[in-house]
Each structure stands twice: as structure tokens, then as C-alpha cells.
Amino acid sequence: MAKSYQELTQNHPCFARGQKSNKGRIHLPVSPGCNIACKFCDRQINDYEDRPGVASEVISPEEALEAVGRAIAINPDIHVAGIAGPGDTLATDFALKTFRLIKDKFPDLIKCMSTNGLMLPDRADEIIDVGVDSLTVTVNAVDPKIQAQLNSAVVYHGKRYTGEEAAKILIHNQLEGIRKVAASGTSVKVNTVLVPEINKDHIETIAKTVSEAGAKIYNIIPLIPQAELAWCSAPTCHDIERAKATAIKYIDVFMHCSRCRADAVGVPGGIDISKLVYLKVLNTKQTFSHG
């Protein structure tokens, strides 16, 4: 049975309310590929960028299990095993296989997964069965016209869709999946990348919609202008605070996201011990395909 939302607020740094948690997490970079083409995404394999979508290497589920053991030995404050990339966790089978291994060997760890939600309705039963405690879904719009400006394509059941057609599929699957997973008792967090030129005035609608679908907490992530959205501006502090103030009318809002790498290890905001945990380090530049 998934851990309660109350327990997550005490032991999961991404669910802590109002102040930084002293609980640590390990991000396991086991998911190599993606099935959607976000216009702001620049997925990389390197050891020098500090942002989502980046890892020093992609490892196997078995290597991930060994990494968890090393991390806990170095830092007993590790309470969360999370998988957030560098690709999408449901685009391949590696994330769910990793969680099955963790469930058997480290049953007390909180299991945390992030996904774009495209495959969520198809794989919700597996997520529930493996005992994922917290699921994060990135929902950048619930209006296809807006979503199409943020995502150029999805690959769903082997077929590529573009534009508003792709956006409609993605939004439908995200909301259906959130409803299904939330109904099981699993806590759902929603991330939204705030792009001032595109979805700044859409935050209230997103927050209200995902809350009604069953999401428990909402996280607003400032855009890093890059890739196809390099022409956009990073949101100002005022933009972010305004968005949070709008969203909090409908849902708890996460106040201190540090935009972690897909292989981050340690207490957010503290010393990262990933170099000690992941023994093989690559220093190459390689962009992942979105499928």
C-alpha cells in the first residue's frame, strides 16, 4: 500500500510544506528514451550541467539497486528512491523493473516516479502494483492550443502525432492517468514549466483542473530558455510568486524546488554525493531522441 500524503510531507523533500526537508533522495537514471518532444527540452549526458534531463550516465535496474545501497551507506538520511529520467520513466520498462527490485530489497524507502503522463493510463495498474508512493506528472497546459506551443509531437502506440492532435492525446492521458492513480491512494504531484510568453496566464486553470483530478501538490518550475524555446524568457521572481499565489487557491504548492539532475543524490540544497554513488562518470555531450 502506498505511503500516505501525510507521511510524504514528513519524509519526502518534494512534499515538505513551507520549509526545506532534511530528508535525502537518490535519483536513479535508468530511463534512456522519451516519447514526447517538448520544445524546451535538451536532454544531455554529462557531468557539468545542474538541471533536469541531465545525467552522467544511464544505468541498468541492477546497477540502480547497487547505487541505492551505496547511497544509504554513505548517507543514512536517504529516504526516497526516485526515477525522473533522463528520459521518460514510462517510455521504457526500466523504471518499473527498478522499483520492483527496490520494493524487495529496500521496502521502507519511499518510491517516487516522474513522468510526462503520455503512457499513464496504460501503465497505471503497474505503477500501483509496484507500490510507487508518489507520482509526479508534468502538465504544462490543459488547453490543446497552449500545449501545442510547448510540445511539438508525441509517439503513442507506435504512431507519431503532431500539433493540437498530439496535445489532445497528451492532455487526455495525463488527466485520466492522474485520476486513476490518485484513486488508488497514491499521492500525485503535478509539475508545470512556467513559460511567460505561453502559459503564464494559464496556471490557474491547470491548478484547478489537476486538483479536481486528484493531484495533491503542485510545483511550478521556471523555464530554462533553451532548445526550441530559447527565444522565450525565464520567468521573473514576480512571475513565479504570482503563479504560486494563483495556484494555491486550489492545491498545495511546493515552495522550494531545486530543479535536480536525473542522478542527484543527497539532501536537496546540501552536498550532492552522486559522484561517490555512481562510480562510472561520462563527460560527453549526447542528446537523447524523443522517439
Rank of each mutant, 00 (worst) to 15 (best):
N219C: 12
G131K: 07
D50V: 13
D108L: 12
S114K: 05
G85S: 01
G177T: 08
E164H: 07
T284D: 11
P225S: 02
H27K: 05
D88V: 00
A16T: 11
I36M: 12
Y278M: 03
V154R: 09
S211H: 14
A227K: 04
L8H: 05
A264K: 09
Y250M: 00
V277G: 03
M113S: 02
K159Q: 15
K105D: 07
T236A: 06
A166Q: 08
N75T: 10
Q147M: 15
I248N: 10
D50Q: 14
A230C: 06
C34W: 05
L65I: 06
Q10M: 11
E62N: 03
K200T: 05
R51P: 07
T186L: 07
E204V: 04
T89V: 05
V281S: 14
A84H: 10
N35A: 12
H290V: 03
I127L: 06
D263K: 14
I198A: 05
D77N: 11
G185R: 09
T192I: 10
A230S: 15
D42N: 05
G53M: 11
G266W: 08
V137H: 05
N11M: 02
A84D: 05
T9M: 06
E126I: 01
K280S: 13
I74Q: 12
P235M: 03
Y218H: 03
I127K: 09
T236C: 02
Q10V: 10
L279C: 09
D77R: 14
A64Y: 07
V130Y: 01
R25N: 04
G270Q: 14
T162I: 15
T138R: 04
A207E: 14
H256D: 10
T9I: 13
G33W: 07
G270Y: 04
Y161V: 09
E212D: 15
N191R: 00
D88P: 01
V181W: 01
V132N: 12
R70V: 00
H202F: 07
C14R: 01
K111A: 06
F288D: 15
V132H: 06
N22M: 09
E63G: 02
A153C: 01
K216V: 03
C34S: 02
G69D: 03
Y161G: 08
C38D: 12
I240M: 15
D108N: 09
H79N: 00
I251E: 00
V210K: 14
P144F: 08
Q10A: 06
P29R: 07
R160C: 11
V154D: 09
K189W: 06
A167S: 15
N46R: 03
R17P: 10
A71Y: 03
D77F: 01
V267F: 13
A55F: 10
Q149N: 13
P235Q: 15
P52F: 11
A262V: 14
G185P: 12
R179D: 06
H27W: 05
E197P: 09
P29I: 03
D77Q: 13
S21R: 00
I128S: 13
